[in-house]
Simulated assay, not measured.
Amino acid sequence: MKKLFAALIALTLFSVSAYSQSGLGIKGGVNLTNISTDAGSLKNNISESLDTKTGFAFGIWGRIGDKFYLQPEIMVATKGGKVSVTPFGGGSPELVDVKYTNLDIPVMIGFKPLGFLRVMGGPVASVKLSEDMKLRDALAEYTTNTGEAFSNSTWGYQLGAGITLLGFDIDLRREGGLSDINIMNFNNEDKFSQRPAGWQLTLAKKIL
Rank of each mutant, 00 (worst) to 15 (best):
residue 1 M to C: 11
residue 2 K to A: 08
residue 2 K to M: 09
residue 10 A to T: 14
residue 11 L to M: 13
residue 11 L to V: 13
residue 17 S to L: 04
residue 20 S to Y: 00
residue 24 L to S: 03
residue 30 V to I: 15
residue 33 T to E: 09
residue 43 K to R: 15
residue 44 N to R: 05
residue 46 I to H: 00
residue 48 E to I: 06
residue 49 S to W: 08
residue 53 K to A: 05
residue 56 F to W: 04
residue 58 F to L: 11
residue 61 W to Y: 15
residue 66 D to F: 10
residue 67 K to Y: 04
residue 70 L to G: 02
residue 72 P to S: 01
residue 72 P to R: 00
residue 73 E to G: 00
residue 75 M to W: 08
residue 77 A to R: 07
residue 77 A to Q: 06
residue 80 G to F: 07
residue 81 G to H: 01
residue 81 G to F: 02
residue 83 V to I: 04
residue 86 T to E: 01
residue 87 P to E: 00
residue 88 F to L: 04
residue 90 G to Q: 03
residue 93 P to L: 12
residue 94 E to W: 11
residue 95 L to N: 09
residue 96 V to R: 12
residue 98 V to F: 03
residue 100 Y to H: 03
residue 100 Y to D: 00
residue 102 N to M: 15
residue 102 N to Q: 15
residue 103 L to Y: 09
residue 103 L to S: 12
residue 104 D to Y: 09
residue 105 I to M: 14
residue 107 V to D: 01
residue 109 I to Q: 03
residue 110 G to E: 06
residue 111 F to V: 02
residue 112 K to Q: 13
residue 114 L to N: 06
residue 120 M to I: 07
residue 124 V to C: 11
residue 125 A to C: 12
residue 132 D to A: 01
residue 132 D to R: 01
residue 133 M to N: 12
residue 133 M to D: 15
residue 134 K to E: 09
residue 140 A to I: 14
residue 141 E to P: 04
residue 141 E to G: 00
residue 143 T to I: 04
residue 145 N to D: 14
residue 147 G to P: 10
residue 147 G to I: 13
residue 147 G to C: 05
residue 148 E to D: 15
residue 151 S to D: 14
residue 152 N to A: 05
residue 152 N to K: 13
residue 154 T to P: 00
residue 158 Q to F: 00
residue 159 L to F: 13
residue 161 A to I: 10
residue 161 A to S: 13
residue 162 G to M: 10
residue 163 I to D: 05
residue 166 L to T: 06
residue 166 L to K: 04
residue 167 G to N: 05
residue 168 F to A: 09
residue 171 D to I: 11
residue 171 D to R: 09
residue 172 L to Q: 05
residue 174 R to L: 12
residue 174 R to I: 04
residue 178 L to W: 14
residue 181 I to P: 01
residue 182 N to Y: 04
residue 185 N to H: 12
residue 188 N to P: 01
residue 191 K to L: 13
residue 191 K to Y: 10
residue 194 Q to F: 06
residue 198 G to S: 11
residue 202 T to S: 14
residue 202 T to M: 11
residue 203 L to D: 03
residue 205 K to R: 15
residue 206 K to N: 02
